[in-house]
């Protein structure tokens, strides 16, 4: 197993109330798997991604990544893991507005201590993979939403991570561009990358070999994509399929 979550809890204290964003999640993901995480807004998807991505430390439970107990690591050790093992595509791109696409993609490589030349080569290769090598010197504000999304993916790919995490990578895209990005993920999956993907769209989740459904911070479904993706539509037509709650 690449990822082993055991009874993971993440609680937030909001005033006097305790919010259980993750309420005892246990889950294993093997190397090379492609897993979709689905669930309603507020069900804890992003929180779980942050835990898996070593961005957030759970308040309870055990998380073993690649054989290492991450729950015991300090800030800097986690930073190194994020840098070397994990490629993150954040929910709203999180590109640096002042920097060019190229500089944005180079960013994780900067913190790996590569030389300027190596960084550049790897970043250009990553931008080629997402077909944006013709927009390298554009700043995020000079790019379309889909292009930004692709820069974010290129940044995640640039460090050649063993684990690729994507939080709503098609959330802001029209269906054609979304489709392009899904193809890219399929390709990466074919190449052996481990991918965890958060999505609202059942149609997308249905295409994944495996899907996990969260509700109120608990896992309520885990199985082949086609089965789990439509799980909450068991009672038909309460709401139309393509209208997720805005995130």
């Amino acid at each position: 197993m690449l990822i082993e979550l055991t009874d993971i809890r993440r609680e937030y204290q909001v005033g006097t109330e305790v919010v259980h964003a993750l309420d005892g999640v246990s889950l294993g993901i093997a190397r090379g798997e492609w897993v979709a995480i689905v669930g309603q807004s507020g069900s804890g998807k992003t929180t779980m991604m942050n835990v898996i991505g070593c961005l957030d430390t759970p308040t309870g439970g055990r998380y073993v990544l690649n054989g290492k107990d991450v729950s015991r690591m300090n800030d800097d050790e986690l930073a190194d893991i994020r840098n070397k093992e994990i490629g993150f595509v954040f929910q709203n791109f999180q590109l640096l507005p002042r920097e060019t696409s190229l500089a944005n993609v180079e960013l994780p490589l900067v913190y790996r201590g590569l030389s300027a030349k190596e960084r550049r080569e790897k970043a250009i290769a990553a931008l080629k993979k997402v077909k944006l090598d013709n927009r390298m010197m554009h700043k995020p504000t000079e790019l379309s939403g889909g292009q930004r999304q692709r820069v974010a993916i290129a940044r995640a790919l640039a460090s050649e991570p063993s684990l690729l995490l994507a939080d709503e990578p098609t959330g802001n895209l029209d269906s054609a561009t979304g489709e392009e990005i899904i193809r890219l993920f399929e390709e990466l999956h074919g190449l052996g990358h481990t991918i965890v993907l958060v999505t609202h769209e059942p149609r997308l989740a249905a295409r994944c070999p495996r899907a996990v459904r969260l509700s109120d911070g608990k896992v309520i479904g885990d199985g082949p994509g086609q089965d789990v993706a439509w799980q909450d539509r068991a009672q038909p037509s309460a709401h139309p399929a393509e209208a997720p709650v805005a995130s």
Binding site: L55, D75, A79, D80, R82, Y111
Partner: peptide, 12 residues
């Protein structure tokens, strides 16, 4: 936040 998320250590 982004820099730290992408692997910048505290000292950096």
């Amino acid at each position: 936040g982004v820099r730290k998320a992408l692997g910048a250590r505290r000292l950096r």
